[in-house]
Design a protein around this nucleic acid. Structure first.
Length: 204
DNA sequence: CATGGGATTGACT
DNA sequence: GTCAATCCCATGC
């Protein structure tokens, strides 16, 4: 069943079962995976986990118009507006009925660099996707993609490319939150220059 | 229906 | 280091 164009086919997206697991596992394993949208792609170098049981998670307030995506089936995108300006991309995790998601906080640009540069209006690739609001701008991800499928939808997340094994991880507290700020639910690729913020001197 | 608070970024002192 | 921009939506009257 070899398709003639198989050599150029992109890697298959991670299956829904990948996301239907404890959100901390998924947050760790997503580092090194590839996010693809609209001709651009980047390797995830930073994630954060959110779960309804802790107050920093939007789903903590229960089922509302804003959070129903988080409680829905896994492998969907949860995209919301932050500070009235930025769109932030999450992957909904855990079985349907559990409100949890992984925030994609930073990428290392891999493909579509010129398109990213145009959308970001900046020159240096390490500035394209080094933050959760930056990467959605670079990849052209907006609120209309909230609820879209991550398996076969406009946004795809693929396993780490061959020859690019999953990097060593560093864990630390999540960024920019005031509640449950002590939980070490932020995960970064060790040594990456594309993370949103440098690590404090304490290594993990 | 009015209000207040962000899972941020970029510009500025 | 500080701070404003800007809008969705949860909450409370």
């Amino acid at each position: 069943m070899a398709r003639p164009e198989a050599a150029a086919a992109p890697a298959p997206a991670l299956p829904a079962e990948f996301y239907a697991r404890p959100v901390l596992e998924v947050a760790r394993e997503l580092v090194g995976c590839v996010v693809r949208h609209d001709g651009c792609a980047g390797a995830i170098v930073e994630t954060e986990a959110y779960h309804e049981a802790e107050p920093a998670c939007h789903a903590h307030v229960g089922l509302t118009a804003r959070t129903h995506i988080l409680f829905g089936p896994p492998a969907r995108a949860y995209v919301y507006r932050s500070y009235g300006i930025h769109a932030l991309l999450n992957a909904v995790c855990e079985p349907e009925g559990v409100g949890a998601a992984v925030l994609i906080r930073a990428l290392e640009p891999l493909e579509g660099l010129e398109r990213m540069r145009r959308r970001r209006g900046l020159e240096r690739p390490e500035d394209f996707c080094s933050g959760p609001g930056k990467l959605t701008q670079a990849l052209g991800i907006e609120l209309e993609l909230n609820g879209s499928d991550l398996v076969g939808g406009p946004i795809a997340i693929e396993p780490p490319p061959l020859g690019r094994p999953a990097p060593a991880l560093i864990a630390g507290p999540r960024i920019g939150i005031t509640k449950a700020a002590e939980l070490p639910w932020r995960f970064c690729a060790a040594g990456s220059r594309s993370v949103s913020r440098p690590w404090p001197r304490r290594a993990a």
